[in-house]
Design a protein around this nucleic acid. Structure first.
Lengths: 348, 348
DNA sequence: TTGTACGCGTTATCAC
DNA sequence: GTGATAACGCGTACAA
């Protein structure tokens, strides 16, 4: 396993010192003379010694690695979150172990068990869409195991969570559409099980209310599989477009739903925004480039990952048990595009 | 760290047995009586004991975890590869540790060092586009450290690699365009440093040759940053479209280049395939949905990851040092689409 | 059939 | 300023 086979023992033998002296020299202990330190350190660097992290972990009682549970990595939002997590993990010397639930409750439980058996120091989790209750997480948390929830959180547990400001995002998005002159704004959203869905719906409703427009439940369509099932969205769109009072704008609630809606409208040869306007949450820059008239709510995946990881490290490294749960809210950026303006794009 | 705090020691004390008896009972040793085994196992499961993997690693000399180095996880191809890797890793009890180079040579070296210091059992790597030489990997390999290269490999080293059949993919793609009646097929590709670029170019050239069409170097454009820099591709396209003998088809060489080209042509209001046909390597189903007339070469990311991981496990778990290097080639699937046909899509 | 003793590589405590 | 010893949790010769 260790192909830099040199250990603290080797260098002790080679230098005619004791193991503990070498260990202390390496950790720059005050009780070791400067010349011994130099001797040891020089030898160590020359033979590129590196401490065996496994032995270190066994001794110190932590593994310097954390587990991540997401639905799937093959999703712009989550890969951006992981990017954010990695950026701080790397600097703090933590390894990340990624597992995917593929939206299955069963897989979620297996992964969590697997991760805890792997003796990780903490966990970052975004619930699977299927997950009905979070008893399995609550017991862990009760034991004092550090967990931070992000994005897909549950209202059933008071704990550390990092989420986008979905309410205000949806509020801003809907308001933008209304301010642009659209009167009948539909909302295509994901599974009603998820807290993010409720928050976004609330923001949408509040915006309607504040603009004196009556809420119409027929304008809201749920897609249980959140964009993974094309037919679901297709049905929703067909229903909406066939209505007598056909919506003049659609507000979509997640990356996959947004891009799929964009694609479907494209296939149906519906012109955006002439026939129907489209504004949605997204992480796929491609969607914006393809259709500059598509304004979007950019989900700050990177920032969410970064913040969640920082919070988790705080939990792990704090000596005192954490008693106060805080919820950190990050802003969702509303990116306003205008079809007559050039689109500032830096990359895909 | 271990919140299932129970150890083999606890259960020995509790049951009035010795530690080694418990250990043996747990591993179903033949020298332990059935009743003792049952006693121990029952107690273990009831108190959901699980062996500390760190102690196990230290003892057994392997960590049951492998390292992955990719340019960026935020890329359909690589996240699909990782999906494939994870699928077999999970079954075999391996953990995966993911690191990203962001195409930087420096970061690649740091990550590799970081991973080896973390005492992983093996490594899966796709070279960064910047990487000029692979001396740092060759030394590891010389020591007998298990490494499998995938996708972005180097010709400078004889080792285990898993790649798509880029030559035949490019050959098939180009041939398909030529058979469809296009005469002037341009090729927009990535950095000439990468082996995949050379292979694809070779396939493209051979297809031209076999169809009696002369190779025109002006029709080939390199994008050093492989789609990360929009301007590069924009320039390439503008150049091509401004030529006197303007290409009537474009063959793009990577996921990012394909989607970016699609987006740019869209913005330039160039009709596909009427004004210029487009066929490219891709992993983003969105591109196909948006433009059903876009035929594509689907990069088998999942299969590549799966195969690479299987190969790596073979390397790790083989008792005998591996002397024979084999290169496994996977087919690239050509997905033919026709604008007059309905597009069979199952998800985005 | 069960128990004892040692080692994996490291750090921490204590004695010299 | 340096070195011996114990301990982290586990597996395994070897002894009983």
């Amino acid at each position: 396993m260790n192909f830099n086979a040199i250990t603290i023992k080797d260098i002790a033998r080679e230098l005619g010192l004791s193991i503990s002296t070498v260990s202390k020299a390496l950790s720059d202990s005050y009780e070791i003379s400067e010349k011994t330190k130099k001797l040891v350190n020089d030898y160590a660097t020359q033979n590129n010694y590196s401490p065996n992290p496994i032995a270190k972990s066994l001794k110190q009682g932590h593994s310097k690695s954390i587990g991540i549970v997401v639905s799937t990595i093959d999703n712009s939002f989550f890969s951006q979150v992981i990017n954010g997590i990695e950026s701080v993990a790397y600097n703090k010397g933590y390894n990340i172990i990624i597992t995917q639930t593929h939206e299955s409750y069963d897989l979620e439980m297996r992964n969590i068990k697997h991760l805890t058996f792997r003796s990780i120091d903490g966990m970052l989790i975004s619930l699977s869409a299927e997950t009905p209750d979070i008893e399995h997480l609550r017991v862990l948390q009760k034991k004092g195991f550090p967990i931070v929830f992000f994005d897909r959180v549950s209202g059933d547990i008071d704990t550390h969570k990092v989420i986008a400001d979905n309410f205000n995002g949806a509020y801003d998005g809907t308001t933008h559409l209304l301010n642009s002159g659209y009167k009948r704004v539909a909302h295509v959203t994901s599974s009603p099980n998820l807290s993010i869905t409720a928050e976004r719906l609330a923001g949408y409703k509040k915006a309607l209310e504040d603009n004196g427009i009556e809420y119409n439940a027929n304008y809201v369509r749920y897609c249980l599989h959140g964009g993974r099932d094309l037919n679901e969205i297709e049905t929703a769109l067909n229903d909406l477009l066939a209505m007598y009072e056909r919506p003049d704008a659609i507000f979509t609630a997640s990356d996959r739903i947004t891009t799929t809606t964009l694609a479907l409208l494209h296939r149906l040869k519906i012109k955006i925004p002439d026939e129907v306007a489209l504004l949605g949450f997204t992480n796929t820059k491609l969607a914006e480039i393809l259709n500059p008239s598509l304004s979007s709510l950019f989900q700050p995946g990177f920032e969410i990952g970064k913040t969640a990881m920082e919070m988790l490290i705080g939990l792990i490294e704090s000596k005192h048990p954490v008693t106060e749960y805080e919820t950190k809210i990050l802003p969702t950026q509303l990116v306003i595009r205008n079809s007559s303006m050039p689109v500032p794009v830096t990359g895909v």
